[in-house]
Computed example of a mutant assay.
Amino acid sequence: MKIAVGCDPNAEEFKQQLIPFIEKLGHEVTDFGSDDSIYANVAIEVAENVAAKKFDRGILFCGTGIGVMLAANKVKGAYAAVVGDAYSAQRACLSNNCNIITIGSQVTGYKKAEVMIEEYLKATYVYNERSGKKVDRILEYERTH
């Protein structure tokens, strides 16, 4: 898969340590940088590219993962979830069809981040009775507002 990554300046080292791991999993990574102290700018750029289907998925980093998640979710067609454990990372895709995950560099260790990223990237959303109608409602609201 083609993966877009980005972060705020505080998470640059964290991101740089994780990029080779993502590549080792067999994915092509494009780094959208971290120089802008306004993390929303990088998050929006990644989200726009993922929503436009130039990338299959996105991964964003900031101190908690919350700020970049909020910014990314303002982009139509971007569905970002902050994740803090492997199960949530899986379910972000499997239950909610998220095309972006966000991770907090100041609250997550490298090994845990690797596990979450791997679980997220190996998951594939399949429409199902349990989650499909819930995701449909989110998409319907987005289309009409």
Rank of each mutant, 00 (worst) to 15 (best):
Lys2Val: 05
Lys2Tyr: 08
Asp8Asn: 14
Asp8Phe: 07
Pro9Leu: 05
Pro9Asn: 10
Asn10Met: 09
Ala11Phe: 00
Glu13Val: 13
Lys15Arg: 14
Gln16Tyr: 10
Gln16Gly: 05
Gln17Glu: 12
Pro20Ser: 01
Ile22Val: 15
Glu23Val: 09
Lys24Cys: 00
Leu25Thr: 00
Gly26Val: 08
His27Thr: 01
His27Ser: 03
Glu28Ala: 12
Val29Ala: 10
Val29Gln: 08
Thr30Met: 12
Gly33Ser: 08
Gly33Cys: 08
Gly33Lys: 08
Ser34Pro: 00
Ser34Ala: 09
Asp36Pro: 08
Ile38His: 06
Tyr39Gly: 11
Asn41Thr: 13
Ala43Glu: 05
Ile44Trp: 02
Glu45Asn: 12
Glu45Lys: 15
Val46Cys: 09
Val46Pro: 08
Ala47His: 02
Val50Asp: 11
Ala52Gln: 14
Ala52Glu: 13
Lys54Thr: 02
Asp56Pro: 08
Asp56His: 14
Gly58Gln: 09
Leu60Arg: 06
Leu60Lys: 06
Phe61Glu: 04
Phe61Tyr: 14
Phe61Leu: 06
Gly63Thr: 03
Gly63Ile: 05
Thr64Cys: 03
Gly65Ile: 04
Ile66Met: 14
Ile66Phe: 11
Val68Lys: 07
Val68Ala: 06
Val68Phe: 03
Val68His: 02
Met69Val: 01
Val75Ser: 11
Lys76Cys: 10
Lys76Phe: 14
Gly77Gln: 12
Tyr79Leu: 03
Tyr79Asp: 00
Tyr79Ile: 00
Val82Gln: 12
Gly84Met: 03
Gly84Cys: 09
Asp85Gly: 00
Tyr87Gln: 15
Tyr87Ser: 11
Ala89Ile: 09
Gln90Cys: 11
Arg91Ala: 15
Arg91Leu: 13
Ser95Ile: 04
Ser95Gln: 12
Cys98Ile: 02
Asn99Ala: 07
Asn99Glu: 04
Asn99His: 07
Asn99Cys: 05
Ile100Asp: 04
Ile100Leu: 13
Ile101Cys: 08
Ile101Pro: 01
Gly104Met: 08
Gln106Arg: 15
Gln106His: 12
Val107Asp: 02
Val107Thr: 13
Thr108Gly: 10
Gly109Lys: 06
Lys111Ile: 08
Lys112Ala: 14
Ala113Ser: 07
Glu114Ser: 10
Val115Tyr: 08
Met116Tyr: 01
Met116Asp: 06
Met116Gln: 11
Met116Arg: 11
Glu118Thr: 06
Glu118Tyr: 03
Glu118Val: 02
Glu119Tyr: 07
Glu119Cys: 10
Leu121Glu: 03
Lys122Met: 12
Ala123Gly: 06
Ala123Lys: 03
Val126Met: 09
Tyr127Val: 06
Tyr127Gly: 03
Asn128Ala: 05
Asn128Pro: 02
Lys133Arg: 15
Lys134Thr: 12
Lys134Asn: 11
Val135Asn: 06
Asp136Gly: 06
Leu139Ala: 09
Glu140Met: 02
Glu140Pro: 00
Glu142Asp: 13
Arg143Asp: 14
Arg143Lys: 15
His145Lys: 13
His145Ser: 11
His145Phe: 13
